[in-house]
Design a protein around this nucleic acid. Structure first.
Lengths: 226, 226
DNA sequence: CGAATGCTACGGTTTCGGCCGAACAGATCG
DNA sequence: CGATCTGTTCGGCCGAAACCGTAGCATTCG
């Protein structure tokens, strides 16, 4: 019975509100300092320090020392996927009171999800790609069609055939409750959108701003108006 | 900031040892009574009752009343996948002291994982299928090749092209630390093995017994000796 | 070299939640 | 209709852990 024990240990780590805030803040893949995370978690730096120690000891986070700062980031893609899957359950579990805040509204439009795009933007892209037969998505998997490979190449995406992350994966969007594109394909798509200057990161949030160029490009290439 | 809150709530539910035991006991997809779950969780029936109330209220479990018993089971495949992904992190997170017990040894050989096969058996099947080019597996996705479709048809599996679960999925095995077959294909493969009488469930555990017929069949069809 | 900054270590307080004993509600059976 | 079994509710106990204040160590800057 050693399995449930470690299961509970990891889940308990995520189960604390302050630590959940920290992990969510790191979900866009960037590395943040202990101070920034303390602000994100709404607790004092001392308390945050303790939490960060636990999270790194359990190898949920990586710590990177740089000068008098310490940068923390999600340790492995598995950890990010774990958090995603918990969120997928969390959003549809309780039909609870869920007030819409202003920040949430921006997040709902477009945001990063570890290394790919989510929100209305992410779901919209996935819809278009599905509708045109470039990809096929289901709740727990996905596939790029030959047409899709051609299209992605024309779009300027380099699909690396890595041994560890070949495939595209569906990730249930926790605001739209429908799948968006994740995995290697999702990451490449997001990279390309950043390179083209279609979207830009905003300060202090995972929400993304869609630039005018992005608006035009999305309409032209993907029939998409957000 | 409503997302991290619900994230923490769900994770905290899984984060209690007793509840983790309950969820693990239900991971093979069967429905168990409150009493059986109390035994599995190693706590009193009263305590278990409280835990079960919380889990069903959060829609992690389904409750089914039948006579004077109440049967509980995992509510949705998403919940099962969430638990799998947490375990995937849990096993590789701490290089901790991990004593090998006897029960664990049986589990390590062959067991069910929600609705598909895991352990040395599951990993071995995945290896063979990969090696022969019937499926391609990566850490976060998978694909059935045309040859694979033929082979599965010859093997007597009915691959339903359901809109919701088309694809095959890799599930990182927490004992072997390598992927085994999950998703619709994994479930169909497991079903076929049960139908052929190759494996049988054992009492009070998710471990599986491989029958003599199974041993022969696995060697003949899959070059596999467990 | 002192001062300021970023982070961590320690102690004490407080709150939260798991746990069991006892009592209660339905269902089944003789 | 009592006896028994399964499961739930209530009340009180107790331990674990989250939190902050104070203090201490490293790094950078004036």
């Amino acid at each position: 019975m050693t399995i449930p024990v470690s299961l509970a240990e990891v889940a308990a780590l995520v189960g604390d509100p302050a630590r959940a805030n920290i992990l969510c803040a790191l979900l866009d893949g960037r590395a943040l300092t202990a101070g920034e995370l303390a602000y994100a978690a709404n607790v004092s730096p001392q308390t945050t320090s303790g939490h960060l120690a636990k999270l790194t000891q359990a190898h949920l986070l990586d710590a990177l020392k740089q000068g008098r700062h310490r940068y923390f980031r999600i340790a492995t893609p598995q950890v990010a996927q774990m958090l995603e899957s918990i969120m997928a359950v969390a959003v549809q579990a309780p039909p609870r009171h869920r007030p819409v805040s202003k920040v949430d509204e921006a997040m709902r439009t477009a945001r990063t999800c570890y290394d790919h795009l989510a929100g209305r933007l992410g779901v919209g892209l996935a819809d278009t790609l599905c509708g045109r037969g470039h990809v096929v998505l289901a709740e727990d998997g996905g596939e790029v069609t030959p047409h899709g490979h051609d299209f992605f190449a024309r779009f300027g995406m380099r699909l690396v055939t890595d041994r560890r992350r070949i495939f595209c994966r569906a990730c249930v969007d926790w605001t739209e409750r429908r799948p968006h594109l994740a995995g290697a394909v999702g990451a490449a798509l997001a990279d390309r959108c950043f390179d083209l200057g279609w979207v830009k990161r905003m300060r202090d949030t995972r929400a993304l701003a869609i630039t005018p160029a992005g608006r035009a490009g999305l309409r032209e290439m993907f029939d998409l108006t957000i």
